[in-house]
Nucleic acid binder design. Structure first.
Lengths: 335, 335
DNA sequence: CTGAAAGCGCTTACAG
DNA sequence: CTGAAAGCGCTTACAG
């Protein structure tokens, strides 16, 4: 929504409601001496006209706009790196970043507008169509970073080339000589997870390496999913000799499962992660993984949010940045 | 600074400057038609009276106060966890959290006040006495989380029992039978690093295990410091059989140095970290480390900041939370 | 450059 | 309950 040329004032509301400005003022300030019916009518009009108290009006045109960034779960290394990209871009463009965990309540979008937020960036958001509708009604632009759902043309989003990343990761394992490769991923419904998994499948099919259904498992993007999934697959009669993990955390869970049964990485088992968070660089052996340009993605999300806040058009409602395979020491030829 | 009973208005400034309200208004709005001398005199008075434009006044008493959180470096797992504690406490208390990287410029503190910030939380801050003075002048309360300098009685801070943590970590290694224990820490000047190192020294002295000067090295709280430091110490004629690291990142660097020369952890080398970030839990072998209650520390910092913002007294200007040794799998008896 | 005057958007004590 | 009136803090077109 472009900034209003001029905000509705109490006088307008008073005229339409057929009451005095004083009465409208009382409603706005929640005074008790107003008849319930009058109050209801005035509230209705205030809502309809999107009335904003003078103290908040400056937020609409402030040269220092504030953008809300919401996370729906823990601030993992993944989100922390995206957040850094957001903060750096905001500093450069003179915007402020408010950070919170999302917990949409009634009037949630409207409250954000009243508090002066000019746009919302949701990291791996679970927003439903109803939430998006409330945002639209409140006039608060939304940008989703790494969307869990398929791109919706009323929602702007920034992601990475997950399919290509999954393909590259799996081809790397294939080139090393692996034929039995497992996939341990995040939520089955998350589009990023699906794309990575399909990249994996595509590589295996192209190499004519058949994959038993049991080789593919979905869970959460957590260490635990890797630990449990790997334990299960390594118990198979024909266990995988390599794993492609849906993210770095899962990869570390797999490595721990291997260690706990005396398997060495990469001598006995190869593992490729996804994300290239700082985890991947700091772990022993350093993790081969698919880099997502998280900082850049955060920066683009912030820029997009700011442009939408200013009422500018944004060409494409979904942008995907390139992933890149980073080969380190957790992969090698099979035994 | 307690919230002002009533803010200075243009009328006061006009009276004192001996000009009309209209002229003062022009100065405030940066209009060109004001004589330079008049402008200077009025600006001086505005500054002296701490004039705040009406659009910003609500921030002084807002039921949704906003707190600025500044980091002076990367958003590592360490800071991300403290930030989570801050965010959770803010959500509970109805405060907003603005996050930025610190880059104090001229008028920096005053600008934060104008932008509506009610307090500042600095994570491992490098603020100098001059910065603190500007904050005091601007009336913006400061809380430092994990201070790098010694507690200053005009600065509120939240830390952990670093000395006790260093002691516990080193005693653990001693109990396992190690006699040659190295310390690889962060910046030599950082008080948290000094306290950890002195805890280590105290444990070794109590056990009458002499420590060659070469066994202690300071650097940065990074993977690289661990990698390089361990490489150097492991080249000694009598290398340590165990390391106490100033934080988890350094510990992981040490483990990587060990791996790259074919040493196994914990069979050939024991390593204890500090912080207990998610890194420690996700790495193989899981890291024995000293837990800092980072979330709790963040929560306390936020609460303290909010109380100071409300002009309340805070009993103690430095709070230290207890650390706790968490034994996992990166430590064992020496060969 | 300066400021008296008109005006804006809002609030509040008070008369009805 | 309601609103006319006074008032507050500020801005601005305009006369000097």
């Amino acid at each position: 929504m472009p900034p209003h040329a001029r905000r509705t004032t109490l006088a307008t509301i008073a005229r339409e409601a057929g009451v005095s400005v004083a009465t409208v003022s009382k409603v706005v300030n929640d005074r008790s001496d107003v008849a319930p019916g009058t109050r209801a009518r005035v509230l209705e009009l205030l809502h309809e006209h999107d009335y904003l108290a003078p103290v908040f009006r400056h937020t609409e045109t402030a040269e220092n706009p504030t953008i809300e960034v919401q996370f729906n779960n823990d601030l993992k290394t993944y989100s922390a790196e995206a957040l850094e990209g957001i903060i750096d871009a905001a500093a450069e463009l003179g915007a402020s970043v408010v950070i919170s965990k999302s917990a949409p309540a009634p009037h949630w979008a409207r409250d954000l507008v009243s508090a002066g937020r000019r746009a919302l960036i949701a990291v791996t958001s679970m927003y439903t169509a109803a939430h998006v509708k409330e945002l639209t009604r409140a006039g608060l632009p939304l940008v989703v970073l790494d969307p869990l759902h398929l791109p919706h043309n009323r929602v702007h989003s920034v992601g990475a080339t997950n399919f290509a990343g999954g393909l590259a990761a799996t081809e790397h394992l294939l080139h090393l000589g692996h034929r039995r490769v497992g996939y341990l991923g995040g939520p089955a419904m998350a589009v990023c997870n699906q794309a990575r998994m399909h990249g994996y499948r595509a590589a295996l099919e192209a190499a004519e390496a058949p994959t038993p259904a049991a080789y593919v498992r979905h869970g959460e993007f957590t260490h635990r999913t890797g630990l449990l999934g790997a334990a299960a697959l390594l118990d198979l009669d024909e266990p995988p000799t390599a794993f492609f993990a849906g993210n770095d955390e899962i990869a570390l869970g797999i490595i721990e499962a291997a260690r706990s049964r005396g398997l060495r990485v990469p001598e006995d088992l190869s593992v490729v992660g996804f994300d290239d968070t700082l985890l991947a660089r700091m772990v022993s052996p350093p993790l081969t993984t698919v880099r997502q340009p998280l900082r850049e993605m955060g920066g683009i999300a912030l820029r997009t949010a700011l442009r939408l806040a200013n009422g500018e058009r944004v060409e494409s409602h979904h942008i995907e940045l390139a992933t890149e395979l980073v080969v380190r020491s957790s992969t090698g030829p099979p035994r």
